[in-house]
Design a protein around this nucleic acid. Structure first.
Lengths: 349, 349
DNA sequence: CTGAAAGCGCTAACAT
DNA sequence: ATGTTAGCGCTTTCAG
């Protein structure tokens, strides 16, 4: 079995057996097109020569189908496995891939300057997760002619997308605090632009946010505020990057100096950071401070956080289905619902 | 820009410009092989025709390199995002992929009968994670001529692998309990075969376990036991499947009837389940019951679990590097170290 | 600096 | 039931 020669190919097998390549092809792809006997001989010869079946790449070139979809993410790849909300969404995507028997290719973001893998990944379509509206990778994917579907930004008409009622959820969260009598409320935000800036985000920055999900959340908070006849511009929106629990801690450390009675965190990870900071400062939650998150991740639930639930798994699965169900591309579903989940991190002011 | 015709190809662009296809190819792959002016014209024409650059599949066929590695896992894909230890390992793999600018394709396990995606995934190599020693997919990958590297089973000589000193770690865990004076100890095990069986695993089953990682762990416990002159076969090894925190709960519910003073759980997820069951039964940990886990996952740390740490990230990264560093395949590294981490879930008997 | 020609390995009409 | 032929789209010697 020493193979000094090149790897066996369909032609090799065909020649060894004195048949034509198409017969060997048929042995693999259309068993009914040849006698059982010949087929058995083909397979036996293939085994003897160490031929493992049609080369997937060549077959893909012929068929134009790779059997995988790609996932593009705005953070380092390892983040896909770090952020609880991302993990849930990915689980949904992965489950759908499994059902459709296609692979899921995580497409890494490369250091600027490197030729983008979005342009070369061997996939039949791409899920764009949490990209800013003007991200170049959207354009590259489009030019390749690949079907794309965005999740958590960008939205139509920029790209077909699975959307979530972020705004409604955020509105409910803010109204909840207002109903409890809170008026001195601060917001902890993740990045509102790709520039790594940190600080108290002015209104212009809030509105120019290219990440649709978070822009909508902020808009939802504001809706509730203005519906109550209050001045949104008086609400401090403290932005931190990079995203994560620590960002929440750091934002809260600054914010708490203002002695707010409540904090709206734009995600549960940030909210957990706020809880950390509150504890470090000796504040009781919800006695001294109410905190509302967003996402309803498992650890938020464990911490008793009041938050806004969204169907993460369904969101991911819907995105994958959009790519996989109808090759042409089905219509995007209506916005998925969000729901306020009241736990023990909020109380009357 | 209405494209009634077929998608533009290299030849299309060449013809539109009256040059040869190879010139267009050079414009993309060897800018130095043609005048800057001609190159600019080629690129402009390409843009005008909506040609997005060389087709990745065709290029792959030519070059024989896909630019991605695959990851194969013995559980449903979504599990990769559920199990904390798997997530950590995957993060390591993903980080290495990112550094090498290659994609990471998660290859789903299909319902039995379906043509296996391991045979057709467009990848340059495969990481086999937690497969049983006799898994068919190892053979399929080999026949394709793909480089493979196993993590957490199978081990050499079955396959090149990144190994961890599971046995040493388990030995330390068991010795820790013995040192504390525990003698009535029970083990909670995840699956010791792929058959879905549950119950008290007899010795034969323990030894035939095709999952190397867990077989080694069990062997490590036994080492310590026998070194202390005790009879391993008197130790109850309670096996549950499928794997997860709930499995730990259910195993512990049965086990605790024997009134052990300590439990060795073969993973932190199982250990957390044991803690749940102990709490439900009104047992204090470590007062009434000591518990030791394995893996040192974040939630284990948060729960104050005494456990065995292993370098998950490094394990995953090393596996990916083995595939990516030297195309030929480097030598596997020596077993990665494990380390007993004593927290507050263990005390003297 | 540019072009012609020969495949990479496979599949699907279309014969026979 | 089996073989012939013509590509899928690209890259790459090798000539000019």
């Amino acid at each position: 079995m020493a193979d000094g020669a090149r790897r066996a190919t369909m032609t090799t097998v065909a020649r060894a057996l004195g048949v034509s390549p198409s017969t060997v092809s048929n042995a693999y792809n259309r068993p009914d097109q040849l006698s059982a006997d010949l087929r058995a001989r083909v397979l036996a010869t293939a085994a003897r020569l160490g031929y493992a079946g049609p080369d997937p790449v060549a077959r893909t070139l012929r068929h134009g189908r790779t059997g995988a979809i790609g996932l593009v993410y705005d953070e380092p790849l390892s983040f896909s496995f770090t952020d609880p909300a991302a993990v849930l969404c990915l689980r949904g995507v992965a489950a759908a891939c499994e059902r459709h028997a296609v692979g899921l290719t995580l497409v890494p973001r490369l250091p600027a300057g490197a030729p983008d893998l979005v342009g070369t990944a061997l996939v039949d379509g791409l899920v764009l997760y949490c990209l800013p509206a003007d991200d170049d990778r959207l354009r590259v994917a489009r030019e390749r002619g690949l079907p794309v579907v965005a999740v958590d930004s960008p939205r139509p008409p920029l790209a077909p997308a699975v959307t979530v009622d972020d705004r409604g959820g955020a509105r409910a969260a803010a109204r909840h605090l207002l109903d409890l009598g809170h008026r001195r409320v601060a917001v902890v935000a993740e990045r509102l632009a790709a520039d790594g800036w940190e600080g108290t985000a002015p209104r212009a920055r809030q509105d120019a946010n290219p990440y649709d999900g978070t822009r909508e959340r902020l808009a939802g908070y504001r809706d509730a505020w203005e519906a109550a006849g209050l001045d949104w511009d008086a609400v401090r929106v403290e932005e931190r990057a990079p995203y994560g629990r620590d960002a929440g801690r750091r934002a809260a450390r600054d914010l708490l100096a203002d002695r707010p009675t409540a904090v709206l965190a734009m995600s549960d990870e940030l909210a957990l950071g706020v809880l950390d900071a509150a504890a470090a400062r000796g504040l009781r939650v919800p006695g001294d401070l109410s905190v509302v998150g967003f996402d309803d991740t498992p650890s938020a639930a464990a911490a008793g956080l009041t938050t806004v639930a969204q169907p993460h798994l369904e969101k991911g699965a819907a995105a994958a289905r959009l790519l996989l169900d109808l090759p042409g591309g089905a219509a995007a579903p209506p916005p998925l619902p969000t729901r306020l989940v009241v736990r023990t991190s909020t109380a009357a002011s």
